[in-house]
Design a binder for these strands. Structure first.
Lengths: 181, 181
DNA sequence: GAAATATGTCAATATGGCTGACGTAACTGT
DNA sequence: ACAGTTACGTCAGCCATATTGACATATTTC
């Protein structure tokens, strides 16, 4: 494997074949930074969620319903990669407490299309705001072009076969939410 | 760059013409890409872990013990931010099954310094190898300089007051492990 | 009318967090 | 030497979130 990844960094040299790894020395730095960064990132929302008696599962559902209004339950299951039983419990709480509401699909009335209520949107936006504050602080520190670089890096880390779906999902969300404002 | 004092502020913001806008538009793209990227990233190890009857908690412990040999239990608790009871359960399994071993500290014999066994190192390296494959594939796609860019982005996403500690931890690990090979 | 689809629900189980309380060995300081 | 603190372990129980398997209901499709 040609080392296209010329180490611009001072410390780590590509070591000789290691006992049990693939061929290369593990990318310890990225592995650990990703752990710490994600830990702090999801932490932002926890305090607020706790005030509502919610957990991260509620956040994930609320986020995707807010961002992709009218999505089907099946879509949500695909995205979150959990079972409908797991989703059901969390979704039921969000619906009972009127953060999310369901409407029968116009074409296919078996479908329960999901929407956030005003209350749900307020909470979703509050949580997104907290996370956005962290992101913007980071990107400002890093300067021009860092937003694109971060996007490209994160996208490249996604399974190749999933990337188109993710991009389509995000583009569609931008259309829908953009049209409302 | 405009000041982005996002909704860290009040619960109910009065008179908002646009229900969907905080003061700034959320960074939906980074929020969602981070979710999908991290989901796929941690997924890499799950199949292997399942074959040993382990979960992600075991992976985290094994990773940090492998990478930072001789670390104290208290250090691990700080890093993982879990209680000693939660750690205890997982750690006990790893020790009983001889993936990890404890040695009394030389200076302070109350301390139980943690080390991976050969078996533990093999598993840790296998898991790190899987994640490294994903990382290297991404960085190769993105070209020269992307490794540094990713590092900087992830570091900037970490709580500022934690960054020094993270960097010191990583530098120390490089020294220790680097000395062995 | 039969089959497939979208969703909901019941029951049981596992993992991985949590709190509180208590125990023990070992270090530290007067 | 003794008291207090520290590092760690453990018992008991609780909670959140995930799992599988089976089954129910409404609706669409062929």
């Amino acid at each position: 494997m040609a080392d296209v990844t010329v180490s611009v960094l001072p410390d780590r040299v590509p070591a000789k074949p290691d006992p049990c790894a693939g061929s290369a020395e593990p990318a310890w730095d990225i592995i650990e930074l990703l752990f710490f960064a994600y830990r702090d990132f999801v932490d932002d929302a926890d305090d607020v969620l706790a005030r509502y008696g919610f957990g991260r599962a509620h956040h994930r559902v609320l986020h995707f319903v807010c961002r992709h209004p009218g999505m089907k339950v099946a879509d949500l299951l695909d995205i979150l990669r959990i079972t409908k039983q797991s989703l059901g419990r969390v979704l039921k709480q969000l619906i009972d407490q009127e953060f999310v509401e369901q409407k029968a699909g116009a074409n296919d009335r078996r479908q329960r299309l999901l929407f956030v209520t005003a209350k749900g949107e307020a909470l979703a936006m509050k949580l997104a705001g907290l996370q956005t504050a962290r992101i913007e602080r980071s990107l400002e520190e890093l300067g021009v072009g860092s937003h694109d670089a971060a996007r490209r890096f994160l996208l490249a880390m996604i399974n190749p076969e999933s990337r188109d779906g993710v991009l389509r999902l995000m583009a569609r969300a931008d259309r829908i939410r953009g049209a409302r404002t």
